[in-house]
Structures are given as structure tokens and as C-alpha cells.
Design a protein around this nucleic acid. Structure first.
Length: 111
DNA sequence: GACATGACGGCAG
DNA sequence: CCTGCCGCCATGT
């Protein structure tokens, strides 16, 4: 996989868009895929820009714990849960159920 | 220009 | 097992 042909943000957008419906991934996974696993925070920041001006399924991206930490940044705190639920992902207490099963690793699946 | 914070993650205690 | 601290990059004050 070629890395760093475009901006870090652009790559985050693409990876996020490639997340299969009904699947979720983590900021760290995306960061690791992009080669900046140490800067998982940047991924979150990138997605922040994404939700504002791009149509990105950012609701499929959660933290390593499977927790919907960023739901508060969506149109509505419930939006993230609703979107995930609409895709068949069970969310309880801001946490993705069966996260380990639904987890989608870009560096593995997208390879 | 410097300090503090943030959609995170890993390691140490 | 749970809590706390550090690192990383960009943005806001």
C-alpha cells in the first residue's frame, strides 16, 4: 500500500469510507494503517473535519475500547448510535457490542 | 509565541 | 484489575 501520497486527512477519509457496512474500526487501527499509530489523536481530529464537510461514516469509527467517544460531535449524540443500529450494530451504554467481531482492521482486511 | 486541550493508545505503577 | 502519565499533531485562546 502506498502511503503518504495525499494529506493525512485525505487518507483517513478514504479508509473511513471503505469501512464495510455493519463493521467498525478504531482510530488506532486507522492511524496504524497510515503509519502514524502513535498519533491516533490526529485520526480523531481528521474525522472531526470529515463530519463537517464530507460525507464520511465516521460513526463506524470508535476508540480502541469500542466506546462511542465522539458521538457528541455528531449532529446529535443519538445520531451515532442510531446510524450504527441502522447497520445492525448493537450499541449499549455508548459501547459497541461484539466489538471484537465487528472490528474491521484496514491493514488486514483492506490489504 | 507559549500554554492548554482534544473523536486515542500504550506502558508503568 | 484499575489509575495515572506520556507521546503525538493540530487548533484555539
Amino acid at each position: 500500500m502506498l502511503i503518504n501520497n495525499e494529506s493525512f486527512f485525505e487518507q483517513v477519509y478514504e479508509v473511513t469510507k471503505l469501512i464495510p457496512k455493519g463493521r467498525v474500526t478504531s482510530y488506532g487501527a486507522i492511524a496504524a494503517y497510515l503509519g502514524t499509530k502513535q498519533s491516533a489523536r490526529m485520526v480523531g481530529w481528521a474525522l472531526h473535519s470529515t463530519t463537517a464537510h464530507h460525507h464520511i461514516p465516521a460513526h463506524r469509527v470508535v476508540n480502541r475500547n469500542g466506546l462511542l467517544t465522539g458521538k457528541h460531535h455528531f449532529s446529535s449524540p443519538e445520531a451515532m448510535e442510531q446510524l450504527l443500529a441502522a447497520e445492525g450494530i448493537e450499541v449499549q451504554n455508548n459501547q459497541v457490542q461484539d466489538f471484537d467481531k465487528l472490528f474491521w482492521d484496514p491493514s488486514k482486511e483492506l490489504l
